[in-house]
């Protein structure tokens, strides 16, 4: 694997992402977002166990469980990050982030997993409440 060739200035990468945002609004009429896709995913999964119940829930009537522009956008983020990481030698399989490892030890895989899971539950509940 190649050596990590280093990142770009966050000002440059951020500015360019602004250009991507402008083009998206211009061409597709779509503004960036990610958290709605987690609602659609939850709905798609719940449909497997009880489609009738999902069809009657207010929030899934408002945010219909289906694959849409944003859902594919989120998949694209995964793939784009992977392409960038692999081609620059900065792809690294890691179960515990460096900062976490310095504080809690590199072997604390389970505490990290539990914290990330609980954090995810809480973060998404808050994000959805604020409509973000």
């Amino acid at each position: 694997m190649k050596q990590d060739s280093g990142g770009w200035s966050p000002y440059i990468a951020g500015g360019l992402s602004g250009v991507v945002g402008i083009l998206s609004v211009w061409i597709a009429g779509k503004y960036f977002g990610a958290s709605t896709s987690f609602v659609r995913t939850a709905g798609l999964i719940e449909q497997v166990f009880g489609a009738d119940r999902v069809a009657q829930m207010d929030y899934f009537i408002k945010v219909v469980p289906r694959i849409d522009w944003q859902w594919m956008f989120v998949v694209g983020i995964f793939l784009g990050a992977m392409i960038s990481a692999v081609t620059s030698g900065s792809f690294k399989l890691q179960a515990v982030p460096d900062m976490w490892a310095r504080r809690f030890g590199a072997g604390s895989v389970v505490p990290r997993a539990l914290t990330a899971f609980v954090g995810g539950v809480v973060a998404m509940f808050g994000a959805r409440m604020a409509d973000g």
Partner: peptide
């Protein structure tokens, strides 16, 4: 769009 954005985020 996600591909470009994810690339730049990385």
């Amino acid at each position: 769009t996600g591909l470009f954005f994810g690339f730049l985020l990385q």
